[in-house]
């Protein structure tokens, strides 16, 4: 039996002191700061002006659209590739352990380092990508992967997919391994084709894992910063400036604390909205 005494509070106290100091207070400060220049004038300058500005500022609106594009594309590709590799590894494959380790490897690299390595591969003259494409006679002159405003986002997305899909794969593989064999045998007895098996046995069983991997991945991708920062710093011409990069630049480069806070608050609301189903799913198991 669980006890009802007050000593429970003592055990969780240090945890919540840290949460309050490092997350709680800054969060409230940021919220207030998005309405008033609290660091110079306190709350006397309370205004909705920063939020009003957000919804007419093309820089913010474009960044918002770009964020949705970046997160949507990367998460979708992580899922497709992750599911594909998980299914392949779950079938009777030779040297499964070996493939599994290789499949996880990119995820073990910090995203900053992944960004640096891909930047090195994208280098127009000394990078391996142009060299490879040139040898295959697919390009005639060097392509500026990270300096061309239309190519830069797909290039960053490719680097991100490389580093991000293994986590989804890992979760889905763990999920696949829990599906009872009998269900497949029953489907086979009923004469199901491979595609029917996938649609009516694999997918329904995998649904909770797909849901949780998608939510976690969406949260991480929305907050992605290091990979983009080292590859492009949000450029060229803001072509990769997603909201986290925009908020950072507004705060730490241009010192628009109020405006940056308003952007971050919108970002936080967006994340909490995504996160609610995750919190529900996880805390049901309390």
């Amino acid at each position: 039996m669980k006890s009802k005494s007050l000593s429970g509070y003592w055990f969780i106290l240090p945890c919540f002191i840290l949460l309050l100091g490092v997350l709680g207070v800054p969060m409230v400060m940021a919220l207030l700061n998005s309405f008033a220049p609290i660091w110079t004038k306190g709350l006397s300058g309370f205004t909705f002006a920063y939020y009003r500005k957000l919804f007419v500022d093309p820089v913010f609106l474009n960044s918002l659209i770009r964020t949705v594009y970046f997160v949507g594309t990367t998460v979708a590709l992580h899922l497709v590739l992750g599911l594909g590799v998980a299914l392949a590894l779950n079938s009777a494959v030779r040297a499964r352990r070996f493939f599994r380790v290789i499949a996880i490897l990119p995820w073990t690299v910090p995203d900053v380092i992944a960004g640096l390595v891909w930047a090195c591969m994208y280098d127009p003259l000394s990078g391996i990508l142009n060299e490879l494409l040139h040898r295959l006679r697919l390009i005639a002159s060097p392509v500026e992967w990270l300096a061309n405003p239309t190519l830069v986002m797909p290039s960053v997305i490719l680097a991100d997919v490389w580093r991000g899909y293994p986590f989804v794969m890992l979760v889905l593989l763990a999920g696949l391994q829990t599906i009872p064999r009998e269900q497949y045998e029953a489907a086979r007895v009923d004469g199901a084709s491979a595609i029917q098996e996938f649609l009516y046995v694999t997918l329904p069983n995998l649904k909770p894992m797909i849901a949780i991997a998608t939510i976690l991945d969406m949260i991480w991708q929305t907050r992605r910063f290091g990979l983009i920062w080292v590859m492009t710093e949000g450029g060229p011409a803001r072509a990769t400036e997603i909201l986290s990069v925009l908020a950072y630049r507004q705060y730490f480069k241009f010192f628009n604390f109020e405006y940056a806070s308003a952007i971050s608050v919108v970002l936080a609301l967006f994340l909490l909205l995504i996160g609610i189903p995750y919190i529900r799913m996880v805390s049901q198991r309390v």
Binding site: L23, M27, A30, I219, F225, S264, L271, L272, Y278, S283
Partner: peptide, 22 residues
């Protein structure tokens, strides 16, 4: 428990500015 789990969702850029000032 809800607070604990929700605190994982907060974006770094929201917190790091005020934390820096502190």
């Amino acid at each position: 428990i809800g607070v604990l789990l929700a605190s994982q969702m907060l974006p770094g850029v929201l917190l790091v500015g005020p934390y820096f000032k502190m």
